[in-house]
Design a protein around this nucleic acid. Structure first.
Lengths: 110, 110
DNA sequence: TTGACGCATCAACGGATATTGATATATCAT
DNA sequence: ATGATATATCAATATCCGTTGATGCGTCAA
């Protein structure tokens, strides 16, 4: 590996978290406000165990937070995390700067 | 599965594409303009075969496009795809609408 | 036409990830 | 204290994904 292998680990984990059908769905549902697991279960028609697995992934990645209320656990989005991903996709900052490619010419590159 | 299993397939594939260290890096590099594979090889210090594999993933997901020029193939970002992901993370639209949760009370949910 | 170069594809392997069913833990109601 | 409910965790399994080295294919230069 190279210099600038200063890994974007957290960011990658966040994208991974969202990069799955069930979890993407969960994010959509949570965008309306917090929900407890049993509600999500109903909305998604997913087995409890499966749902719990995916919620853990999302939580470990920092995409959602949880809060216990009696026997229920409510999950909610963590806006900062979504914003972080969003801003990556928007600005996409440099690692190693270089001069922009010269006008449409056919110069070799290697 | 449920109603509203109208799968977000394309979107999921795009997030998957970005959800890997090497590919995230590639996106960063391409954000400055198109690059050919051999240039990326230098920047990333990755084996040719490996790089080709990841570029294919990105391309199949619609995140990058390629264009051949002589013996070189130049890859570039597809801005619409990035924008699509971005807007998902921003607005996160409903699938199944429902009334917002009532003021912070402790009502059971199931 | 031959050889070098840039890139893609393939097969094999190992490691990660998702699904399921069973079990554990905590909280509440009786 | 007992049993029911909400959720988490675990073990087993199947599938997917990334890496590597080898090979194939198109393109250019001599």
């Amino acid at each position: 590996m190279n210099i600038s292998t200063r890994s974007n680990d957290a960011l990658v984990r966040r994208f991974q978290a969202v990069a799955e059908e069930t979890r993407l769905r969960i994010v959509q549902l949570l965008s309306h406000g917090e929900r407890c697991v049993c509600e999500l279960q109903g909305d998604l028609g997913a087995a409890q165990s499966r749902l719990s697995f995916h919620l853990k992934k999302l939580k470990d990645a920092g995409v959602v937070s949880d809060r216990r209320v009696g026997r229920w656990v409510y999950y909610a989005l963590v806006p900062e995390s979504l914003e972080e991903m969003r801003s990556f996709l928007g600005e996409v900052k440099p690692e190693t700067p270089w001069a922009g490619r010269m006008g449409g010419g056919g110069e070799p590159c290697c």
